[in-house]
């Protein structure tokens, strides 16, 4: 019965996303959507995936990660280089196939870095993950600023701090990647969202997902139950890194020029804001917050300069509100009612 309930919830979630996609597609093809908003569709998909995946780390496994943009940038640049190489070496011209393969490349590289960071850090207790991921995001950006990649025939050349390499330059140090094939499309972004939802929801409802949440709730008790806490925290962290890498790949292949400076600390914080505003651990909240906060600055272009300021204020207000006993008891009551209604429904179904 329990399994069924979560399956139904999942199907409803996919349904809502599919309906939203159909509405957006209809608006695009009927011309009801403004040009600037149309240009925002792929970034919205990217940020939704970023927010859901970060929520897996922050909300479900309870670790603070401040370098999610780092995984995004690894995904973006490895996908850009991967796409160019795949086209040159294997002669893949089909754009959708190329995009999907590049996204797999981006996800794989981000996942490798996720493992490298997770192995030392997730063994420790405390806020070390926040410290290390914060540094990781900055280090990756600075390293990418010094990296040069070029393609000569089907051979890749790499150099560090030395722009004179043979062939066509793919990644030009601080100037980033230029003349990127813009192969990212909204439908692929939509499929990536569905894929992300599928992965995250199935993980959360699985035995491993419960182990991840138990480790979050009480590490010592979880260990005493025979749960290998490090392993399950790694599982959440690496899954999130792979998804962020795939989102980054989609993002990178959506613009003709991409520089590492696009994936600054601000971007990590922006994604964290989506997660916090949407409610930590609440996947739908992340989706809604990511959509609204990506669209709003476009609509309120005149206030774009104040965006970070407004975010800061909103964050503080949210924190104040969630610590206010009155508002908390109000929420508790709402959640409680939801829960008891659920059990009643469950009882009726039996």
């Amino acid at each position: 019965m329990k399994l069924k309930k979560s399956t139904i919830n999942n199907l409803i979630s996919y349904g809502v996303v599919i309906v939203a996609f159909i509405v957006c597609q209809a608006m695009i093809s009927s011309g009801a959507m403004s040009r600037s908003l149309k240009g925002q569709m792929v970034p919205i998909c990217v940020y939704i995936v970023m927010a859901i995946s970060l929520n897996l780390v922050v909300g479900i496994s309870g670790e603070l990660s401040l370098g999610h943009a780092g995984f995004m940038s690894i995904g973006a640049f490895s996908a850009i280089i991967g796409a160019a190489w795949l086209r040159a070496a294997l002669g893949i011209e089909n754009e959708i196939l190329l995009l999907v393969l590049s996204m797999i490349v981006g996800g794989a590289f981000a996942g490798i870095f996720g493992v490298l960071i997770g192995i030392p850090v997730l063994r420790l207790r405390g806020d070390y993950l926040a410290i290390v991921t914060l540094a990781f995001g900055e280090i990756i950006r600075n390293v990418l600023n010094c990296l040069y990649f070029s393609l000569e025939g089907s051979r890749l050349h790499v150099s560090f701090n030395n722009p004179s390499i043979p062939g066509t330059i793919l990644l030009n140090g601080p100037n980033g990647a230029k003349d990127v094939a813009k192969i990212a499309t909204f439908p692929v972004g939509f499929v990536l969202i569905l894929f992300t939802l599928f992965v995250v929801m199935n993980l959360v409802n699985s035995r491993s997902g419960r182990a991840i949440m138990a480790s979050r709730d009480n590490r010592i008790a979880a260990e005493a139950m025979g749960i290998n806490v490090t392993k399950y925290k790694m599982m959440a962290f690496v899954t999130a890194a792979v998804l962020a890498g795939m989102a980054g790949a989609l993002y990178g292949l959506n613009f003709s020029t991409v520089a590492a400076s696009k994936f600054k600390f601000d971007t990590s914080i922006l994604v964290l804001v989506f997660v916090v505003l949407g409610g930590i651990g609440n996947i739908w909240g992340s989706i809604i917050a990511a959509t609204l906060l990506t669209v709003l600055p476009e609509l309120l272009r005149a206030f774009a300069d104040y965006r970070m300021l407004v975010y800061a204020i909103v964050l503080i207000l949210v924190m104040l509100a969630t610590n206010n006993p009155f508002i908390r008891s109000l929420f508790d009551r709402l959640i409680h009612r939801g829960r008891s209604a659920q059990t009643q429904r469950g009882g009726a179904a039996e």
Binding site: D217, N218, I220, A222, E223, A224, M225
Partner: peptide, 29 residues
């Protein structure tokens, strides 16, 4: 995590139940 599998269970100090899970979910863990 391996010690438990051998047949030793610890009921830790201060109870340490999983606060946000139901009684049943706690037991399943």
């Amino acid at each position: 995590s391996k010690v438990v599998g051998l047949g030793m269970a610890l009921c830790p100090e201060g109870r340490r139940v999983f606060q946000q899970m139901t009684v049943r979910e706690n037991l399943e863990m």
